[in-house]
Design a protein around this nucleic acid. Structure first.
Lengths: 250, 250
DNA sequence: TTACATTGCGTCATTATAACACAATTAAAA
DNA sequence: TTTTAATTGTGTTATAATGACGCAATGTAA
């Protein structure tokens, strides 16, 4: 933040990035959110775009800084550019907190357009990183997201909606689950994202027919009831399906 | 253009809009392209964003100015923000042509991010409008698009690709065809967009099963061979399907 | 009058989907 | 130790969707 206050001519003016980072844990679809001490609401992790960086690169940077992982599944899904989307932000809390003089503050109070990215990450590998010591960063169940700043709730909703649609076009799971997982776990992931129950047996048939799963000669241990079999993704086939898409339609 | 040269502080800096406007005619999917006398290549119709306008509104304005129609099907599909996407543009031809002094020209030579929209319009209702007398604006078959400026070819490709995917998620045709049309015409539209042949009989079955077509008691006249029946879209059902989507997948 | 391209309507085999049955496994309760 | 309950693995069956065709009707042009 300090760098940009002093050298905002090095950043793309009026343009920001916001990331909706999804993780899956305890049968919950979680979102990585941030709370700064000078704001009363939570917000999506975001950032500005150095003028000498591609916007995608800037998004990767935000994500990497916040989760500590590389090679993340990251997709741009929409740009948000309503005139009034940030008209009462930065104007108060942030500028005061950073003691930014009015003239320099104009850079922050201008009308901002933001580009939304969503990411799918392995909850156990992603370690939430604070931007500074006063920040709080945490995984929050998407069903219990508190009030967010600006239009961040809309951005989050749109991201989830996009994810739901893309679920029908491509396989997911590789990015959200640990290397070894069970079919019921994968099903829970789908059910959680879609917010609806699926039939166990039909799910198994459909997911295995895609041809991206490898059944391991190993069962999950330390579980109540019957121990489910473990699977991994066949990465080559997975990537092929990712590239070519699932349902052809016409 | 004049307004923005003198009052560029009224526009969102470093951000533009580009529109991929599709029309369907003579069994060709056509794109509305522009050629300015001071450029050797063609370009997508685009524009800048007034700081007091939503980006979507700015896109509607561009579209309306270029086609003369309202109530257009218009969708934002991606933002393009590679660092070098406009590094050799504006720097020469445009600035010279408009005799923009170097200082004022900096606004145009800065790094630009552009937001891509695609539109579907009725070819016969859309009348290409020149921005000024020296411009050429024309419908060009998407298979014969000449070399375009900057990354406009990529933007066009991405738009078409998005359209192909969305064809499986929603009905189209209402925006691209005249009010009355035949099934073979609708099929040609699909085939042209997808660039593949479809079976007549299966197409009829599938498209009618969607329940968005109304068969008219009228046949197309002045045609070679057997006169095909005319149809219209049932707008209520069409909109309902548009809203809810076609294939559920999971 | 005939040839030909196109339309309208239909069949049939295959595949995909939805709904459901039952046995096996394992922790916890009785 | 036995029983209960939850969960997993592996089916079956009926229905719907899809892909690959056949054939007669229509209207232009040879």
């Amino acid at each position: 933040m300090k760098g940009i206050i002093e050298n905002n001519e090095n950043y793309q003016p009026g343009l920001s990035i916001d990331c909706v980072i999804f993780g899956f844990h305890d049968n919950q679809l979680k979102v990585l959110l941030i709370k700064t001490p000078y704001e009363h609401k939570w917000s999506l992790p975001g950032g500005f775009i150095p003028i000498d960086e591609d916007i995608d690169t800037a998004a990767v940077t935000v994500l990497n800084e916040r989760t500590g992982i590389d090679g993340i599944f990251l997709r741009q899904f929409a740009a948000f550019g309503k005139v009034k989307r940030n008209d009462q932000h930065f104007g108060k809390a942030v500028l005061e907190h950073y003691k930014i003089p009015e003239e320099a503050g104009k850079w922050f109070t201008q009308r901002f357009v933001t580009i939304g990215y969503y990411a799918l990450v392995d909850f156990l590998k992603a370690i939430p990183q604070k931007g500074n010591s006063q920040e709080i960063i945490d995984w929050i169940d998407h069903k219990e997201v508190p009030e967010l700043i600006l239009d961040h709730k809309q951005i989050l909703d749109k991201a989830l909606n996009t994810l739901r649609i893309e679920l029908n076009l491509m396989p997911i799971g590789y990015n959200l689950l640990p290397e070894k997982f069970t079919i019921p776990e994968l099903q829970k992931l789908y059910e959680t994202i879609l917010d609806k129950k699926l039939d166990r047996r039909n799910f198994l048939r459909k997911i295995t027919n895609i041809g991206i799963l490898t059944k391991l000669d190993e069962k999950k241990s330390n579980v109540a009831h019957k121990a489910p079999n473990l699977y991994t993704f066949d990465k080559d086939k997975y990537d092929e399906v990712l590239k070519n898409g699932l349902n052809q339609g016409w």
